[in-house]
Simulated assay, not measured.
Amino acid sequence: TTAAYLTQRAPAALPAVSLGQTVTSNGNGATTSAQPIQVDVNVPQPTPALLGPKAAMTPFKTFVMALYAGAYIAFGGFLGLTVCNGAPAPPRVSSTVAASLATPSLLLSLTSHALCRSCRPGCVQPRLAKLIFALVFPVGLCMNTLHGTELFTGNTMKLPAAIYEGKTNLGGLIKNWFWSYSGNFVGSLLFVAAVVASGVLAQGALPWGQCFIRAILANWLVCVAVWNAGAASSLPGKVLGIWPPIAAFVAIGLEHSVANMFLIPLGIALGADLTFSQFIFQNLIPVTLGNIVGGLVFMGTASSIFYGSLGGAKKMSEAAAH
């Protein structure tokens, strides 16, 4: 029978194995050998040879890469504000106590007063909302690290290290810090404009323009996920690279044309107060156009500025020929 066959084919019980050992099995049983476990992880090391080129980049390239760094950090904040928007109503306390509690965490104090729908003067955000914000905010730094942008706060470590190792000078440090700081600031402000235009943190119907802006932001994150997957060399690495940007765009409530091709017609089929023509002209068309802009401009063009011919490097075909 099948059960008897499986019993005959079952291997002998294996002994306990500690970390740093591998197990081999043969017909006479199992043996172990003390060999280190090999883990397929590619970790870029910030060696001086890699730090020097940062200072040598043109101001234009540094500024554009810093724009993206500011925007990616803002994406993490945007995600945090969005998921905290539905947090439980905070308790009412005196204004003096509220001020003293908010002082160490100005960001979450602003979150409390600007976004909590039931917020009243003198209230503070619950600790749960702070924890949620803290858990999702690192998505921005993950995207910065994997996409190789110019984040000023990280460059305060990298450029001095390059000077110490003789890979750049004080002028290179000042140039990088100035343009990365400026780009981070401008990128953050531009993202503020995008968030306001998207209407994600507002209530009401979704106009054509808001669909378009949300679709740009959505496919920006989708293409970041594709980029991350391409940077990984193993299946777990690809999954981990894909997960945070996609989870972020879904949690924020952005618009993806292909997902909408299923979700909205399903809603119509189940009785939603929406016609198919309204779906096509008021949602699918602006979302498709926004997805194109997000992928073409914010990732395709930007990646060429970062690493390709638009940023002064050789085209991939020319580099391969050499």
Rank of each mutant, 00 (worst) to 15 (best):
S182G: 08
W243L: 15
R127W: 09
F63Q: 05
T58Q: 06
S109M: 07
N176G: 08
L266R: 12
V239T: 11
L110E: 14
A114G: 09
S100E: 14
N283S: 13
A259M: 07
G199W: 11
F306A: 12
S182P: 00
W179I: 00
K314R: 13
L274H: 04
A229F: 09
L240A: 14
G29N: 09
S18M: 04
C211M: 12
V226F: 11
P90W: 01
A66V: 04
F279I: 02
V39G: 02
C119H: 15
I37N: 10
S95G: 01
Y68D: 02
I268H: 03
M316R: 10
I305L: 10
V41F: 02
T47C: 00
F152D: 05
F281T: 12
A202N: 14
N176M: 06
G27Y: 05
A194H: 01
A134R: 08
E150P: 08
L50K: 12
Y5N: 01
I285Q: 03
G267N: 07
K167W: 05
G148I: 02
T31D: 13
L51S: 05
V224L: 11
V200I: 13
P91E: 09
P48V: 04
S105K: 13
A215T: 02
A114M: 15
S317Y: 05
A302W: 05
G209D: 10
P236Q: 07
F137V: 15
P126E: 10
P53Y: 02
L135V: 14
L173K: 04
F75A: 06
A34M: 12
F133R: 13
Y5I: 00
A232I: 01
L6G: 00
A49T: 12
P121Y: 11
L159V: 11
A55G: 04
R117A: 15
A248V: 09
N260W: 04
F78K: 08
G154A: 14
P265N: 08
T103I: 03
A259H: 02
